[in-house]
Structures are given as C-alpha cells and as structure tokens.
Design a protein around this nucleic acid. Sequence first.
DNA 1: ATGAAAGCGCTAACAT
DNA 2: ATGTTAGCGCTTTCAT
Lengths: 320, 320
Amino acid sequence: MSRVLYLEPKVRESTKLRLEAAMMTLRYRPNSPGRMLASSRTYLIGLIYNDASSYINRVQSGVLQTCRDEHYDLLIHPCEFTDPALQDEIRDLVTAPRVDGLILVPPLSDMPDVKALVDELKVATVTLSSDSEAADADTVRTNDRESLHELVRYLTRLGHRRLAYVDGRPEHKAMAKRFLGFQDGLKDAGLELNPIWVVRGDNTFDSAIECGKQLLHGKDRPTAICCANDHMAAAIMKVAHESGLRVPADISITGFADDPTASQVWPSLTTIRQPLTKMARHASKLLLDGLRGLEPETRNRVVDADIVIRDSTGPAPTRL
Amino acid sequence: MSRVLYLEPKVRESTKLRLEAAMMTLRYRPNSPGRMLASSRTYLIGLIYNDASSYINRVQSGVLQTCRDEHYDLLIHPCEFTDPALQDEIRDLVTAPRVDGLILVPPLSDMPDVKALVDELKVATVTLSSDSEAADADTVRTNDRESLHELVRYLTRLGHRRLAYVDGRPEHKAMAKRFLGFQDGLKDAGLELNPIWVVRGDNTFDSAIECGKQLLHGKDRPTAICCANDHMAAAIMKVAHESGLRVPADISITGFADDPTASQVWPSLTTIRQPLTKMARHASKLLLDGLRGLEPETRNRVVDADIVIRDSTGPAPTRL
DNA sequence: ATGAAAGCGCTAACAT
DNA sequence: ATGTTAGCGCTTTCAT
C-alpha cells in the first residue's frame, strides 16, 4: 500500500512526509502504463470530431483546461463521419482500451448509430451541442434558438423586413434550432418566411459563395441575411463586396459562433458569441466527474450565448 | 509466443490461419496498457505546441494521417511557451512514460532550453520549421527565404518600389528568414530598405492593426506591404479598407502560409502556400521511422512553398 | 516453429 | 495505519 497516498485519508502525517521525501530523492515518476494496466484506467479521454476547424480549436482548448487540472491527457481522433468504418474506429478506441471516456461534437453527437454504439460500449460519453433533450443525457449546449430569435429582433428593430437565411448541414441538429429561432423572429415581427430567401450551404465558406450569389444577384434582394455560422457569413460578405454592395449600408449580414474569422473580416461581423471553450470545459468536467463516480449537478447543461453587435449590420436602406 | 504473428517471419501458414480464426471468433482486441507495459512503448506520440490556431489544425491533420497508417495515436499538449513550468511539463510527458516521441512546432522548436531538454531526455523528437541547419537534426521546413524573395520579385515586376514589411515574433526563427527573403528581393530590384516601412507585430491579427495604422496613416505611404503571415495581412487589409484605400488599386498586400483566412477575406490574399499538412506528414513519418530503428533518407527536409496569386495584389498605382 | 513462463510497474485486496 | 502480495495482459526469452 506504500505509495497509496494519492488521495487516501488514512495516512499519518509522518509517513506521508517520509514517502514524499523518498519520492523526491529518488526522483520517482509513476509509470503510466503500469497504472493503466493495474487500475484499468488510462487517464486519457478521447475527443472525436469530424474535421479540424477553429471550432475544434476552441473545444480542444476548453477540454485541455479541465484535463490539466485533473491529470488527464487528451487523445484526439478526427474522423470522416460518412466513413462506414467509423463504428469500428470508435470501437477500437474504447475497447483497446485506450480511453476512459469520450467527448463527441457535431455532427457526430447527433448521429443515432454513434449514440447506439457508445451505449453498447458502455463508455462514459458527453456530447456537445447535441440534439438530445433527455434529462439523463450528458450534454452541453447553447440556447441556439433563443439567441437567433433575439438577433432577428434586433434586425427588425433596425427596420429590416426583407430577411434571408443561409442554413447549414441538416445533420447538424443545432443548425435546425437556429433556423427555428430565425422563424420565431420573423413571426414576432409579423413577417412571412419567403422560401426564395432561404438557401442552404454545407457550413463551409466555399459552399456559401453560391448561396450569396443566389441571394444577391436575384431580382428581389433581401436587406439582411442571417447565416448559420460565421464562415458562411464571411462568404456572403465577399459576394456582396464583389457585387458592389456596401455592408451594412446596402445589406446587413450576421453570423453565428463568434469565430476568430468574425472579427477579422471587414466589416467585422455581428454574430452570436457561442462560448465554446467554456462549454467544452463544462463537458469535460462532466465526463471526468462521471468517471470518478461523482453525480454531477446538471447532466444537461445550457450555456447562454449572447449577441455581439459589430459593423456588418445597420439600419435597413430606406429606398429600395 | 502464441500471438506473435504480428509481423514474425517464422510462422507456418496453417498456425497463422488457426490463430486468425481464433482471434476472429473471440473478437480479440489486444489490450493497449498490457502491450505498453510489456513492450515499454506507448504507441502514442505527443504534439507540443504553443497555441491552437489554424496552423495547428493543419499540422494535426498531417500528423494524424501518418498516425492512422502506423497504428499510433496522437496526444496533444498545448502549453504556454513563457511558462517556467514548461520544462517539467515536457519532462513528465515523456518520462511518465506517456509518449514514445515528440513533435515540436514553433516557437517551441526554436527554444534552446527545450532542445536541451529533449536531448537530455533522449526522446525521439522532430521539429517543424525550426532554425537548425544541422544535418543530424530531424526537422522539416519550407524555403521561407526563397519564397518571399520570389514574392517581392513579383511585386517589383508589377512596378512597386515602395515596399513595406510587417514582421512577426522574433522567437519564431522562420519569420526572420522571411524578412531576409524580403530584403533579398529589395536588393534584386536595387531598392533600399526603408526602416520606417518595417514594423513588427506578434503574429496575431490584433497586433497588426496597429502596424497597419503606422504604415498607412503616415505621410509616406508604401504601395505594397508584405506580411510575415496571413492573419497580419488580413489586419492590414482591414485598416486599408477603413482608411478608404482600395486593395489592390491603391495598395497591394501579401500574406504568408495560405491559411484558410487568406481566401476568406476580401479581396482574397496573394500569399505563399506553405504545405503544412504535408510537412507534418513528413515530420511524423520521420519520427515513427526513427522509433522503429529505420534510418530515414533525409533528416533535414525542405518542402517547397509556392506563391499563390490572388486578388490583393496588382500593379503599383501610377500617380502618387 | 511453437509452447511455457518470467517479468514489465503498478493497484488493490489482504494481512497485520 | 502500514507492510505484503497477487495479479492486470501483454512481450520476450528460453525450452522444446
């Protein structure tokens, strides 16, 4: 039992000191494979995601903040969410056993077969921005719907009545909530949803270039465009510039997430600040608490996003 | 010796098949802590870096491509390069032992005390874009100097004679090479280096806003500005827009790296495409080869960057 | 070419 | 409260 003074309550102060001194002089470092094997824990958590992006950077940063405090390390595991081998990959990662727990981000956190798999594997898992409203699901998300609702309210107060929306991937359920919030805002202002003004990209900058052309080169131009993320908003803005439109004098554009991109484009984007790093910190704390058998306060946590008004939005143009 | 048919030459075909069948039916998965302990290898490599960014995303992506092929996993370890505890952190990461090898990126790969530490620990290490020209150093980098030289040549051919430079962190040695390339280009064209036109940011977008103001709000305005990376170039561009300057009609701006940002700003940036993912793939292959005792072809590899001409550069304005 | 057995460095259970 | 010991599941060496 010699060096069980990791956190044991039953040790006399004297022996504790004696051991600490010995560890000091021998420069003792516990051997991690040894502990892993004996304790059947790895002190490693896995972060599985679809593709690297600034989104993932912020998530990693939050997870790592928690890991650092709790003496865990982070294994990252990007994958292709359309890959049929995905199931096997995840299976190997947890049954090897390589990791103690898993953090899943969209769109993986929304995939029913992935959910079924982690259930089957009985591996501790927490998801980010997943669809589940179930009280027993360990998940952390933002109030996507409400925040976009508020953003639209801000826009209609500025006089905008011709609002368009650039939607994202349907696999990403949080996106659907944002669109719902957009519709809530329209309804509030007594506005109709014009199907011509709803287009869909695949969350990437490139995909939204086409969306921008559709929206801006048509006869019936909106005066404000809400986008499901910042990358797509940046693309819309580029198309606007190239079409000789002034932002925000001629057209207002909004993003979602407050990615670094949002403040680096010109004019800087009005957007919704999604506190991803903080969310990831909560998520990993939830996971680690579960791992050591603690019952966490909330298993289904909502972190509020807030609206950030920058330079890409302004009053609706008066003459049409 | 039962399951040593990992890659053993001395196995009869029949027994091999027999074992494979058994492994199949028993759904046998090797236990990784078991192998780690017995073989004293972890099948984990560590990627240590300063801060998360799109740079790191691209590096991770390259490393992971190699890891995937070679049945290694990736442990990421961000740190604060000014933290005095950094040495202990790295020490723990490798002596635990948690990782078999290390990949270091700038500015860590340029820090003498980090280099001394990994030498002392005798841990397999490869660096990215590090300063070392030593033939025995395992490192992968680009021809920073030459490529910036060529970029300046392109600019002077467009008629630019008033060239400014936005430098980055001095700790990042590759940055210094870029500046040298800039000076080479000036010399080629018979131009003097004007100290007023050399400013320094800290590699971030935010820091370069101030640089942009200095360069563009002064009396003596340059007609082209080369930046040590894309983020700073994006900031200069923003300042230009805000000052009512047209890009590239009034001012040409170039970046370095071909970050996603480079193609997402308006107008899109002329820049140097640094094939980071490919470099990271080479680096991790170098590391893994070393780990299994193979002597790699080149220990000091240079991957060529090439110039990407987009919309932020054009002929020098004729009237001043 | 294949089976047998001894550790790798820990943790946890047991004995004191 | 502290010392002692039996595995954890592999790899590797030694016998056969």
